[in-house]
């Protein structure tokens, strides 16, 4: 009998059979792990299975390769704090969906688990947007696509980083990048060496930057592409700051403007 116990964050739950659910959880020591929850669709258990909730997870299975069964006990209801705010709820759903779609199953990523927990616990802070972008940068790094934001790829001034190369993910200084600025991605102020402001415009600059790398590096070979939750969050944020362009209206349901 295989079994373990750990804390985790619910990423998704889909109905299975009449009463059960297959739940995907990001655990601290066992990574993204799925399991069957008996009675997962019941009104008693459904509340604990909301994406973003912190749970105590006990997994057991006869054989390690099987789906196995989860016993989940709600620890903290982190999703409830975001429900009133469309942007925060969008960010929560996006973060959970990205983990669910991008992380390999049963591979431990304790750093990412703690990062996601910290992000969800601080969604009521003023800098939640910048924290979200930084979490996506950490996700890229965890998946093997680290961005180099500490020095200029062209040998320029490391204290005056302004852009990032969409091909290499290396930062470029203001002086060295000026001739190519229409081909480079803007670096949000809070990721520059002097840690500038975290306004909504800067957060959106960061979201565009991470979106590019998620799209071209992480989800390039995924048949389903970037999760819809991430697209919807991007579009909602663009609408929030009034920067919705044709390119940002990326959903197929015609919800632009």
């Amino acid at each position: 009998m295989e079994q373990w116990q750990d804390q985790g964050i619910v990423l998704s739950a889909r109905p299975h059979g009449e009463n059960g659910a297959v739940v995907s959880v990001l655990t601290e020591n066992y990574g993204r792990h799925a399991g069957y929850v008996r009675g997962g669709q019941s009104s008693r258990n459904r509340g604990a299975l909301q994406p973003g909730n912190l749970v105590g997870a006990r997994w057991s299975s006869r054989v390690a390769d099987q789906l196995g069964t989860f016993m989940l006990e709600q620890d903290r209801n982190l999703a409830a704090g975001c429900m009133d705010d469309a942007l925060r709820l969008g960010a929560l759903l996006s973060a959970c969906a990205l983990c669910d779609a991008a992380l390999p199953e049963r591979e431990a990523h304790p750093g990412l688990f703690h990062g996601l927990q910290a992000l969800l616990e601080n969604m009521d802070s003023d800098i939640w947007g910048a924290a979200y972008v930084m979490w996506e940068v950490a996700l890229l790094k965890e998946l093997g696509f680290a961005l180099n934001l500490s020095r200029c790829a062209g040998g320029g001034d490391a204290a005056a980083l302004e852009w990032i190369s969409p091909k290499t993910g290396h930062a470029v200084s203001r002086e060295k990048g000026a001739p190519y600025q229409d081909k480079l991605l803007s670096l949000p102020a809070f990721l520059k060496p002097d840690r500038g402001d975290t306004s909504d415009e800067e957060v959106f600059t960061g979201l565009r930057m991470t979106f590019h790398f998620l799209e071209h590096w992480v989800f390039n070979h995924h048949s389903r592409g970037i999760p819809e939750q991430r697209l919807r969050f991007h579009e909602r944020f663009a609408r929030h700051i009034g920067h919705l362009t044709a390119k940002e209206g990326i959903l197929s349901d015609g919800t632009q403007g």
Binding site: G47, Q50, P51, M83, A86, L89, G90, R232, R236, T255
Partner: peptide, 19 residues
């Protein structure tokens, strides 16, 4: 519903109807 899906739908409807 006061679930993540329920509230995400509510926010989506609010956006659609506001415009």
């Amino acid at each position: 519903s006061a679930t993540v899906d329920g509230q995400a739908t509510a926010h989506y409807l609010t956006d659609r109807m506001a415009s």
